[in-house]
């Protein structure tokens, strides 16, 4: 589909230059109240290391445990379906909780931002169904 190819090309070329412009505008326009509020919220989000780390570790542990279980299962006669990822989500989630317990309070609003971003991104990648353009079909 042509429109998805266009979107993909925009993604290829756009992000770095767009980011430069966006951060430049935020920095230079901080004298305007609304932009300053947006800028302050963005800064607070990125300075919230505790929440960022807890969410990052949770995702990292889940995908690493999934890969290890999926590899070990290949040595057995067990089925190799989606149950592995379901188990990894539980084990990785518990591991992340235990390892990060007591480190700092989590800002759930910031956590919600991360989850919403990832859900939206999952929607984008599953909607742009066209693998022909990248040569992997």
């Amino acid at each position: 589909m042509q429109w998805s190819r266009t979107a993909a090309c925009s993604l290829k070329l756009g992000p770095n230059s767009c980011l430069m412009v966006a951060f430049g505008v935020l920095t230079l326009s901080s004298r305007f109240p609304l932009i300053k509020r947006i800028s302050d919220h963005l800064l607070l989000f990125h300075r919230d290391s505790a929440t960022l780390q807890i969410f990052a570790h949770t995702i990292l542990f889940i995908i690493a445990i999934d890969v290890v279980i999926a590899s070990l299962v290949r040595h057995t006669d067990l089925p190799t379906g989606g149950w592995i990822f379901a188990v990894a989500m539980v084990v990785g989630g518990v591991a992340a909780f235990l390892l990060n317990r007591g480190t700092a309070p989590v800002n759930w609003r910031h956590g919600a931002v991360i989850v919403v971003f990832l859900v939206l991104w999952a929607g984008v990648v599953s909607t742009l169904y066209d693998t022909s353009w990248d040569g992997t079909a």
């Binding site: 995908i63 999934d66 890969v67 999926a70 590899s71 190799t80 379906g81 989606g82 149950w83 592995i84 990822f85 379901a86 990894a88 990648v125 599953s126 742009l128 169904y129 693998t131």
Partner: peptide
């Protein structure tokens, strides 16, 4: 393997 298990679980490899 990660993409296979998640693809199987969610029913879409995209």
């Amino acid at each position: 393997l990660l993409q296979q298990t998640t693809g199987d679980l969610f029913g879409s490899f995209e």
